[in-house]
């Protein structure tokens, strides 16, 4: 009996408070509206939030980091990545993909492609408002849709960006040092006999 009245009191307090207390999105305290009017207002995105992968390029879309090694496509658990390597005019393979498709209807947002990529070329994006007028083709994203500049990455995940830039710089230094220490690659030796 009195428990019922107390419960009614609590709900009434919440009812009144929803009109007068300031709004507290993401708060578990009672009182105050928690609703966020989503399309007009949104919560700040968390840095480690991940949704769909994107391809990164440094300065212009042509020199993307991806070398079409196909590791991400092999690692991808639902096999949503499809890569075809590009060839030059003579038919020799280039370190560049010709086709890079990701099927967002299949992608399960696990982020394994990002972890597997040895070239730091694919990262998980914050973009979650993907939608299409039909269920198949509009959600298969092609390379031109997937390519985004490194500045975008720096914007959405600044901490990761700094760490990865540091790593890439060190790798580049190491490579340069290795190149200086051993100016001639072993294959360049003249053949014997």
């Amino acid at each position: 009996m009195f428990g019922v009245l107390r419960g009614m009191g609590i709900t009434f307090k919440n009812f009144v408070a929803s009109y007068f207390l300031p709004r507290k999105p993401n708060s578990l305290e009672t009182g105050g509206m928690v609703t966020l009017q989503y399309p007009e207002e949104r919560l700040p995105e968390k840095e480690r939030f991940r949704n769909f992968p994107f391809l990164i390029y440094d300065t212009k879309p042509d020199d993307l980091r991806c070398v079409a090694c196909d590791i991400c496509a092999k690692e991808c658990p639902p096999k949503c990545i499809y890569i075809v390597r590009d060839n030059d005019e003579q038919g020799r393979p280039l370190k560049k993909p010709k086709v890079f498709d990701i099927d967002f209807t299949v992608c399960m947002n696990c982020g394994i492609c990002e972890e597997a990529c040895p070239f730091d070329a694919i990262f998980m994006d914050h973009e979650f408002e993907v939608g299409g007028p039909e269920r198949q083709q509009s959600l298969v994203y092609h390379m031109d849709q997937l390519l985004k500049p490194a500045t975008h990455f720096a914007k959405i995940r600044p901490t990761d960006h700094v760490a990865i830039e540091e790593k890439r710089r060190k790798e580049a230094e190491k490579k340069r040092a290795a190149a200086q220490a051993q100016p001639k690659p072993p294959e360049a030796k003249p053949p014997q006999a």
Partner: peptide, 10 residues
């Protein structure tokens, strides 16, 4: 509306 307000919704 009312049940929404009770649950701190709009």
């Amino acid at each position: 509306k009312l049940v929404g307000r009770i649950q701190n919704r709009i």
